[in-house]
Design a protein around this nucleic acid. Structure first.
Lengths: 133, 133
DNA sequence: ATTTGACCTGGAGTGCACTCCAGGTCGTAG
DNA sequence: CTACGACCTGGAGTGCACTCCAGGTCAAAT
Protein backbone atom coordinates (compact mmCIF):
# COMPACT_ATOMS: atom_id res chain seq x y z
CA UNK A 1 0.00 0.00 0.00
CA UNK A 2 0.89 3.61 -0.52
CA UNK A 3 -0.17 6.60 1.55
CA UNK A 4 -0.55 10.30 0.93
CA UNK A 5 1.28 12.60 3.29
CA UNK A 6 -2.00 13.27 5.11
CA UNK A 7 -2.61 9.55 5.57
CA UNK A 8 0.98 9.00 6.71
CA UNK A 9 0.57 11.82 9.19
CA UNK A 10 -2.63 10.32 10.53
CA UNK A 11 -1.07 6.90 10.89
CA UNK A 12 2.21 8.03 12.41
CA UNK A 13 0.78 10.64 14.71
CA UNK A 14 3.21 13.19 13.29
CA UNK A 15 2.10 16.36 11.55
CA UNK A 16 2.43 16.82 7.80
CA UNK A 17 4.99 19.51 8.43
CA UNK A 18 6.97 17.20 10.67
CA UNK A 19 7.03 14.50 8.00
CA UNK A 20 8.51 16.93 5.50
CA UNK A 21 10.86 18.22 8.15
CA UNK A 22 12.10 14.71 8.96
CA UNK A 23 12.74 14.14 5.29
CA UNK A 24 14.68 17.38 4.97
CA UNK A 25 16.95 16.55 7.87
CA UNK A 26 17.42 13.02 6.56
CA UNK A 27 15.68 11.10 9.28
CA UNK A 28 13.46 9.68 6.63
CA UNK A 29 14.42 8.62 3.11
CA UNK A 30 12.56 10.57 0.44
CA UNK A 31 9.45 8.51 -0.21
CA UNK A 32 8.22 7.58 -3.69
CA UNK A 33 6.20 10.17 -5.60
CA UNK A 34 2.99 9.73 -7.53
CA UNK A 35 2.54 11.00 -11.10
CA UNK A 36 1.73 14.47 -9.82
CA UNK A 37 4.90 14.65 -7.76
CA UNK A 38 3.17 14.08 -4.44
CA UNK A 39 4.75 11.91 -1.74
CA UNK A 40 3.56 8.32 -1.63
CA UNK A 41 4.67 6.63 1.58
CA UNK A 42 5.09 2.86 1.65
CA UNK A 43 4.32 0.50 4.51
CA UNK A 44 8.04 0.23 5.04
CA UNK A 45 8.24 4.01 5.37
CA UNK A 46 5.50 3.88 7.97
CA UNK A 47 7.26 1.10 9.85
CA UNK A 48 10.41 3.16 10.04
CA UNK A 49 8.40 6.18 11.15
CA UNK A 50 6.82 4.15 13.90
CA UNK A 51 10.21 3.10 15.17
CA UNK A 52 11.49 6.66 14.90
CA UNK A 53 8.64 7.93 17.03
CA UNK A 54 9.49 5.32 19.64
CA UNK A 55 13.05 6.60 19.71
CA UNK A 56 11.76 10.13 19.96
CA UNK A 57 9.49 9.17 22.83
CA UNK A 58 12.50 7.86 24.70
CA UNK A 59 14.03 11.31 24.34
CA UNK A 60 16.68 10.41 21.81
CA UNK A 61 17.96 13.62 20.21
CA UNK A 62 17.43 14.02 16.49
CA UNK A 63 21.18 13.98 15.86
CA UNK A 64 21.44 10.46 17.17
CA UNK A 65 18.33 9.32 15.35
CA UNK A 66 19.93 10.65 12.22
CA UNK A 67 23.10 8.76 12.88
CA UNK A 68 21.06 5.61 13.28
CA UNK A 69 19.11 6.39 10.12
CA UNK A 70 22.30 6.91 8.15
CA UNK A 71 23.82 3.70 9.45
CA UNK A 72 20.88 1.76 8.06
CA UNK A 73 22.15 2.54 4.58
CA UNK A 74 25.49 0.96 5.31
CA UNK A 75 24.10 -2.54 5.65
CA UNK A 76 25.31 -5.16 8.07
CA UNK A 77 28.69 -3.53 8.47
CA UNK A 78 26.98 -0.96 10.67
CA UNK A 79 24.96 -3.42 12.74
CA UNK A 80 27.39 -3.27 15.63
CA UNK A 81 27.23 0.49 15.92
CA UNK A 82 23.46 0.45 15.53
CA UNK A 83 23.10 -2.09 18.28
CA UNK A 84 25.41 -0.06 20.50
CA UNK A 85 23.17 2.98 20.03
CA UNK A 86 20.10 1.00 21.04
CA UNK A 87 21.83 -0.56 24.02
CA UNK A 88 22.93 2.86 25.23
CA UNK A 89 19.42 4.19 24.73
CA UNK A 90 17.98 1.29 26.67
CA UNK A 91 20.29 2.17 29.52
CA UNK A 92 19.23 5.82 29.36
CA UNK A 93 15.55 4.91 29.30
CA UNK A 94 15.87 2.58 32.26
CA UNK A 95 17.64 5.33 34.18
CA UNK A 96 14.96 7.82 33.23
CA UNK A 97 12.23 5.48 34.42
CA UNK A 98 13.97 5.10 37.76
CA UNK A 99 14.32 8.86 38.07
CA UNK A 100 10.66 9.41 37.28
CA UNK A 101 9.69 6.73 39.75
CA UNK A 102 11.54 8.56 42.50
CA UNK A 103 9.82 11.81 41.54
CA UNK A 104 6.53 9.99 41.67
CA UNK A 105 7.32 9.03 45.25
CA UNK A 106 7.95 12.68 46.11
CA UNK A 107 4.66 13.67 44.50
CA UNK A 108 2.82 11.01 46.47
CA UNK A 109 4.41 12.24 49.64
CA UNK A 110 3.38 15.83 48.95
CA UNK A 111 -0.12 14.85 47.96
CA UNK A 112 -0.51 12.93 51.18
CA UNK A 113 0.67 16.05 52.95
CA UNK A 114 -2.09 18.10 51.31
CA UNK A 115 -4.62 15.50 52.28
CA UNK A 116 -3.35 15.93 55.81
CA UNK A 117 -4.06 19.65 55.56
CA UNK A 118 -7.54 18.98 54.29
CA UNK A 119 -8.11 16.68 57.22
CA UNK A 120 -6.91 19.27 59.70
CA UNK A 121 -9.28 21.72 58.09
CA UNK A 122 -12.19 19.40 58.72
CA UNK A 123 -11.24 19.01 62.38
CA UNK A 124 -10.31 21.58 65.02
CA UNK A 125 -6.79 22.98 64.47
CA UNK A 126 -6.50 25.40 61.54
CA UNK A 127 -2.75 25.76 62.14
CA UNK A 128 -1.05 26.01 58.79
CA UNK A 129 1.76 28.56 58.76
CA UNK A 130 5.17 26.98 58.56
CA UNK A 131 4.21 24.07 56.36
CA UNK A 132 6.63 24.58 53.51
CA UNK A 133 5.37 23.72 50.08
CA UNK B 1 22.67 28.43 57.29
CA UNK B 2 23.14 30.72 54.34
CA UNK B 3 24.69 29.91 50.98
CA UNK B 4 26.38 31.91 48.25
CA UNK B 5 24.97 31.52 44.78
CA UNK B 6 27.87 29.22 43.90
CA UNK B 7 27.14 27.02 46.93
CA UNK B 8 23.43 26.99 46.12
CA UNK B 9 24.23 25.99 42.56
CA UNK B 10 26.45 23.18 43.75
CA UNK B 11 23.82 21.89 46.14
CA UNK B 12 20.86 22.19 43.81
CA UNK B 13 22.60 20.92 40.73
CA UNK B 14 21.45 24.00 38.82
CA UNK B 15 23.84 26.48 37.27
CA UNK B 16 24.40 29.93 38.72
CA UNK B 17 22.77 31.41 35.64
CA UNK B 18 19.77 29.18 36.07
CA UNK B 19 19.35 30.26 39.68
CA UNK B 20 19.26 33.92 38.64
CA UNK B 21 16.98 33.01 35.76
CA UNK B 22 14.54 31.21 38.06
CA UNK B 23 14.47 34.25 40.29
CA UNK B 24 13.77 36.55 37.34
CA UNK B 25 10.85 34.48 36.14
CA UNK B 26 9.52 34.22 39.69
CA UNK B 27 9.99 30.53 40.26
CA UNK B 28 12.09 31.44 43.21
CA UNK B 29 11.53 34.24 45.70
CA UNK B 30 14.40 36.72 45.77
CA UNK B 31 16.74 35.38 48.43
CA UNK B 32 18.25 37.50 51.20
CA UNK B 33 21.34 39.56 50.39
CA UNK B 34 24.57 39.94 52.34
CA UNK B 35 26.12 43.32 53.17
CA UNK B 36 27.73 43.47 49.75
CA UNK B 37 24.43 42.87 47.96
CA UNK B 38 25.19 39.27 47.09
CA UNK B 39 22.50 36.59 47.23
CA UNK B 40 22.40 34.55 50.43
CA UNK B 41 20.21 31.48 50.00
CA UNK B 42 18.56 29.93 53.06
CA UNK B 43 17.97 26.24 53.74
CA UNK B 44 14.35 26.89 52.98
CA UNK B 45 15.32 28.31 49.59
CA UNK B 46 17.32 25.18 48.91
CA UNK B 47 14.43 22.97 49.95
CA UNK B 48 12.14 24.73 47.54
CA UNK B 49 14.78 24.45 44.81
CA UNK B 50 15.06 20.75 45.42
CA UNK B 51 11.33 20.34 45.02
CA UNK B 52 11.35 22.52 41.92
CA UNK B 53 14.00 20.35 40.31
CA UNK B 54 11.87 17.31 41.02
CA UNK B 55 8.97 18.95 39.24
CA UNK B 56 11.27 19.86 36.38
CA UNK B 57 12.51 16.28 36.18
CA UNK B 58 8.94 15.12 35.77
CA UNK B 59 8.71 17.41 32.76
CA UNK B 60 6.44 20.03 34.29
CA UNK B 61 6.62 23.17 32.16
CA UNK B 62 7.93 26.31 33.79
CA UNK B 63 4.57 28.03 33.44
CA UNK B 64 2.94 25.49 35.69
CA UNK B 65 5.79 25.52 38.16
CA UNK B 66 5.34 29.25 38.32
CA UNK B 67 1.66 28.91 38.97
CA UNK B 68 2.45 26.54 41.81
CA UNK B 69 5.12 28.89 43.12
CA UNK B 70 2.71 31.81 43.08
CA UNK B 71 0.00 29.83 44.84
CA UNK B 72 2.37 29.20 47.72
CA UNK B 73 2.08 32.89 48.59
CA UNK B 74 -1.68 32.66 48.92
CA UNK B 75 -1.58 30.41 51.95
CA UNK B 76 -4.02 27.64 52.71
CA UNK B 77 -6.68 29.09 50.47
CA UNK B 78 -4.67 27.79 47.54
CA UNK B 79 -4.00 24.33 48.94
CA UNK B 80 -6.75 22.74 46.89
CA UNK B 81 -5.44 24.06 43.60
CA UNK B 82 -1.87 23.17 44.55
CA UNK B 83 -2.89 19.64 45.36
CA UNK B 84 -4.80 19.41 42.09
CA UNK B 85 -1.65 20.39 40.19
CA UNK B 86 0.36 17.70 41.94
CA UNK B 87 -2.31 15.07 41.39
CA UNK B 88 -2.44 15.90 37.71
CA UNK B 89 1.34 15.76 37.51
CA UNK B 90 1.37 12.39 39.24
CA UNK B 91 -1.02 11.15 36.59
CA UNK B 92 1.18 12.52 33.82
CA UNK B 93 4.30 10.98 35.32
CA UNK B 94 2.67 7.57 35.70
CA UNK B 95 1.57 7.75 32.07
CA UNK B 96 5.05 8.75 30.97
CA UNK B 97 6.59 5.84 32.86
CA UNK B 98 4.21 3.44 31.14
CA UNK B 99 5.05 4.92 27.76
CA UNK B 100 8.78 4.63 28.41
CA UNK B 101 8.32 1.09 29.57
CA UNK B 102 6.70 0.17 26.30
CA UNK B 103 9.52 1.82 24.37
CA UNK B 104 11.95 -0.14 26.48
CA UNK B 105 10.22 -3.30 25.30
CA UNK B 106 10.67 -2.24 21.68
CA UNK B 107 14.34 -1.53 22.28
CA UNK B 108 14.80 -4.92 23.88
CA UNK B 109 13.14 -6.53 20.93
CA UNK B 110 15.38 -4.72 18.45
CA UNK B 111 18.49 -5.45 20.45
CA UNK B 112 17.61 -9.12 20.50
CA UNK B 113 17.20 -8.86 16.76
CA UNK B 114 20.72 -7.49 16.41
CA UNK B 115 22.03 -10.26 18.59
CA UNK B 116 20.33 -12.61 16.17
CA UNK B 117 22.25 -11.02 13.31
CA UNK B 118 25.50 -11.39 15.19
CA UNK B 119 24.71 -15.02 15.75
CA UNK B 120 23.94 -15.61 12.08
CA UNK B 121 27.23 -13.96 11.24
CA UNK B 122 29.08 -16.43 13.40
CA UNK B 123 27.36 -19.35 11.68
CA UNK B 124 26.77 -20.10 8.00
CA UNK B 125 24.04 -17.85 6.51
CA UNK B 126 25.11 -14.28 5.83
CA UNK B 127 21.62 -13.39 4.59
CA UNK B 128 20.81 -9.92 5.76
CA UNK B 129 19.03 -7.84 3.12
CA UNK B 130 15.40 -7.26 3.93
CA UNK B 131 15.80 -7.07 7.66
CA UNK B 132 14.33 -3.66 8.29
CA UNK B 133 15.92 -1.60 10.99
C1' DA C 1 47.68 50.01 46.36
C1' DT C 2 46.47 46.87 43.09
C1' DT C 3 45.11 42.60 41.67
C1' DT C 4 42.17 38.77 41.92
C1' DG C 5 37.97 36.31 42.05
C1' DA C 6 33.23 35.97 43.13
C1' DC C 7 29.47 38.30 42.49
C1' DC C 8 26.13 41.88 40.34
C1' DT C 9 22.80 43.77 36.31
C1' DG C 10 20.22 44.04 31.88
C1' DG C 11 20.05 42.20 27.76
C1' DA C 12 21.36 39.35 23.81
C1' DG C 13 22.25 34.74 21.98
C1' DT C 14 21.70 29.56 21.65
C1' DG C 15 19.94 24.90 20.44
C1' DC C 16 16.28 22.10 19.81
C1' DA C 17 12.31 20.52 17.48
C1' DC C 18 9.19 21.82 15.23
C1' DT C 19 5.49 25.03 12.86
C1' DC C 20 3.93 28.38 9.78
C1' DC C 21 3.84 31.04 5.55
C1' DA C 22 3.68 32.76 0.67
C1' DG C 23 3.24 31.63 -3.66
C1' DG C 24 2.67 27.95 -6.89
C1' DT C 25 1.00 23.25 -9.18
C1' DC C 26 -2.28 19.39 -9.79
C1' DG C 27 -6.41 16.60 -10.55
C1' DT C 28 -11.07 15.96 -9.68
C1' DA C 29 -16.09 17.76 -8.76
C1' DG C 30 -19.69 20.86 -10.15
C1' DC D 1 -13.92 25.80 -17.43
C1' DT D 2 -13.21 27.29 -13.14
C1' DA D 3 -13.10 26.46 -8.43
C1' DC D 4 -11.58 23.69 -4.80
C1' DG D 5 -8.71 21.07 -1.84
C1' DA D 6 -4.58 18.62 -1.22
C1' DC D 7 -0.23 18.92 -2.17
C1' DC D 8 4.42 21.20 -3.41
C1' DT D 9 8.92 24.32 -2.29
C1' DG D 10 12.21 27.32 0.23
C1' DG D 11 12.55 29.91 3.89
C1' DA D 12 11.13 32.41 8.03
C1' DG D 13 9.17 32.25 12.66
C1' DT D 14 8.03 30.12 17.29
C1' DG D 15 8.39 28.53 22.15
C1' DC D 16 10.99 26.66 25.53
C1' DA D 17 14.61 26.63 28.80
C1' DC D 18 18.33 28.07 29.44
C1' DT D 19 23.27 30.24 28.64
C1' DC D 20 26.39 33.76 27.69
C1' DC D 21 28.18 38.41 27.63
C1' DA D 22 29.81 43.21 28.66
C1' DG D 23 30.66 46.23 31.90
C1' DG D 24 30.64 47.11 36.73
C1' DT D 25 31.12 46.51 42.26
C1' DC D 26 33.20 44.74 46.28
C1' DA D 27 36.22 42.38 49.85
C1' DA D 28 40.09 39.85 50.83
C1' DA D 29 44.97 38.48 49.50
C1' DT D 30 49.66 40.01 47.85
Amino acid sequence: MSYSIAAAARRSGLSIDTLRYYERIKLLDPPARDTAGRRAYSDEDLGWLEFLTKLRTTGMPIKMMREYATLRHHGTASAGRRKAILVEQRRAVAARIAELQSCLDVLDYKITHYEQIEHNFMSIEPTVEGISA
